[in-house]
Write a protein that binds this DNA or RNA. Structure first.
Lengths: 116, 116
DNA sequence: CTAATATATGAACAGATATTCATATGAAAG
DNA sequence: CTTTCATATGAATATCTGTTCATATATTAG
C-alpha cells in the first residue's frame, strides 16, 4: 500500500521473488502434472484401486469394472508407462499389480481430501 | 490351472470377490478422478506450487508463470471450485492461497514418485 | 497345423478441456 | 462521474484424450 515501487510495477515484487526461489523447474512441474493426469480418469483410478487388494489379469479387471477388454488394455499401458503398475506373464494371462507404494499414498491423500 | 471352475468362467473368481468387497462405490471413485484431474494440468500445478510459498494476487501469478491473466483467472476458478485454494479480497486485488494441507501432501507424494 | 483364448495395438471418432479474445464487473483515483 | 486498474466471465476454437472397432500377436489345446 505504501510501497510506491510495487505500485509502479503493478506487482508485489517481494512475493514474486520469494516464490521464484522456491518453485521447481518447468520440467519437474510438467512431469508432475503428467503424473496426476494419469490418476485423473475414472477407469484408471478403478483399476488402481482394484489392484490395491490383489494382482489381477486383464480379463478379471474388465469383468470387475464393466469396461471392455480393449479399453482396459489401453489404460493398463498408460499405467505401466507411468510406472504405476507392473506386469507378470503366466501362460495366456498377464497379471498386473501395483508398482510401488506411492500409488497408495497418493490415492489415500486424495480420499482424505474428498471426504470432507 | 487345476481349477476347472475358474477355467469355465474365464475369470479368477476368488480375486474378483476379494476386490469387490474392498473397492469404494462408483461415485467416490469418480470424485477421486475428478480431484486428480485438477492436479493434472501444468498451469494449475504451477499455481498451486507458487502458493506453497505465499499468498498471491491474480496478476502476480500471471507474471510469475508467464500465463495470461485470463487463463490464470479461469484456472483459479477451477481450483477454488475444488476447494484447493481460497481467496481474500483487498481493494482491487484478490489474494489466493492454499485451502488446506492435502495440497501439500498430494503434491509431495507426486514429487517423490517422479524423483525415482 | 488349426482352433480357441488372452492380450495388445492402431486408426477413427466423439467428447472434454485449456487458451484466447472480447467484454463485463467492481473498486479506487482524479 | 469518468477513467483506470484488477479480476471475472462467456463464447469460440484448437488440441487432447478415452473408447470403440478391427485386427494382430501369442500361448495353449486338440
Amino acid at each position: 500500500m505504501m510501497d510506491s515501487k510495487n505500485e509502479f510495477l503493478h506487482v508485489h515484487e517481494e512475493s514474486i521473488k520469494k516464490v521464484s526461489e522456491n518453485i521447481p523447474d518447468d520440467e519437474t512441474l510438467y512431469d508432475l502434472a503428467e503424473l496426476f493426469k494419469v490418476f485423473g480418469d475414472s477407469t484408471r483410478i478403478k483399476i488402481l484401486y482394484a489392484l490395491f487388494t490383489t494382482e489381477l489379469c486383464v480379463y478379471d479387471i474388465s469383468q470387475l469394472l464393466n469396461v471392455s477388454q480393449t479399453a482396459v488394455s489401453h489404460q493398463l499401458r498408460v499405467l505401466k508407462t507411468n510406472k504405476l503398475v507392473k506386469s507378470r506373464k503366466e501362460g495366456k494371462n498377464v497379471f498386473y499389480s501395483l508398482a510401488d507404494d506411492h500409488v497408495y499414498s497418493i490415492i489415500g491423500q486424495g480420499i482424505e481430501h474428498i471426504e470432507e
